[in-house]
């Protein structure tokens, strides 16, 4: 039997912003068909983890493999939902334009999007109940609707691994339910999902697995093994102050040895 590489494998990943470490020696292997919630306090490096996996942020050490390959080679197999605040919603594009961006990876450089791409984008809009808004400028939408547009764009990517950065932030109850259903549906179809989440209380019912993060990987595993007072205390109760301080000092001393600034 051939060994199928896991959707995501992270080995000894270290990332720092402006010489301050954010992630420190993280190792994770995520299995196919997992629905993983990433939780941790503010500044725990949740978004950084996602961005590093996507290759948006360059790590200072360690490596990431997507289906056994570096990210560049697996572009079409990864779908991404960035944080809603990361873009300018006054930008002159329509809902349809944004969802079509999900097809760009498949269309290839300098090629136009095909009729089939438009059809897929249209179907994805339908799935999140946003078809009637297809021609609308994206600024004229509510927060929940904007989040649905981002989800539709990720769906249009037709990927096997989905990375979502706070898709539940600032959305209405109806959208929240719709997103949960969508996540379940994708999981049923054998997709792997890694979702950054800010609300610990709902994390338990939304996800199957939990990734507890606070600069270090605190724990990763099934919900019943990880959603324990002990581990949660370890994640949220007090930052790893000594590690953070010492690491900061160490980084400060060797600032000229550091290669590149991961910030773009």
């Amino acid at each position: 039997m051939v060994d199928i590489p896991p959707p995501l494998e992270i080995h000894d990943l270290t990332v720092s912003y402006d010489r301050k470490p954010v992630l420190y020696g993280v190792d994770i292997v995520v299995e196919t068909g997992s629905l993983v919630g990433v939780v941790g306090p503010n500044g725990a490096g949740k978004s950084t983890l996602i961005k590093t996996i996507m290759g948006i942020v360059r790590p200072n050490g360690g490596w990431v493999k997507i289906f056994g390959q570096p990210y560049r080679k697996a572009v079409t197999r990864v779908g991404y939902v960035p944080q809603r605040e990361s873009v300018d919603w006054d930008f002159p594009v329509s809902v349809m334009d944004v969802v079509l961006m999900g097809r760009y990876g498949h269309a290839g450089l300098m090629r136009r999007v095909s009729k089939r791409d438009r059809l897929i984008a249209s179907e994805c809009l339908e799935k999140v109940n946003m078809q009637p808004f297809a021609a609308r400028q994206i600024g004229n939408l509510s927060g929940g609707q904007q989040q649905r547009v981002f989800l539709a764009r990720a769906l249009a990517q037709e990927s096997d691994l989905y990375l979502m950065d706070e898709p539940f932030a600032g959305v209405d109850a109806a959208t929240e339910t719709a997103i949960v259903e969508l996540l379940r549906d994708l999981k049923e179809r054998g997709k792997t999902l890694i979702v950054v989440h800010h609300d610990l209380s709902s994390a338990r019912e939304y996800f199957d697995k939990l990734l507890l993060l606070n600069m270090r990987l605190v724990a990763y595993g099934e919900m019943e093994e990880t959603f324990t007072p002990d581990l949660l205390q370890k994640t949220y109760g007090g930052r790893l102050t000594i590690l953070s301080d010492v690491a900061g000092q160490a980084a400060g001393r060797s600032e000229f040895e550091q290669e590149g600034d991961p910030k773009l």
Binding site: V75, Y80, F91, G102, Y104
Partner: peptide, 24 residues
């Protein structure tokens, strides 16, 4: 004309553009 969609996606959402393989 040639780089229409690449310019559009990088202008709107650089992070996403990178994630779909556009050389940002």
């Amino acid at each position: 004309t040639l780089l229409n969609k690449e310019l559009l996606v990088t202008s709107f959402d650089e992070g996403f553009a990178g994630s779909v393989g556009v050389p940002v």
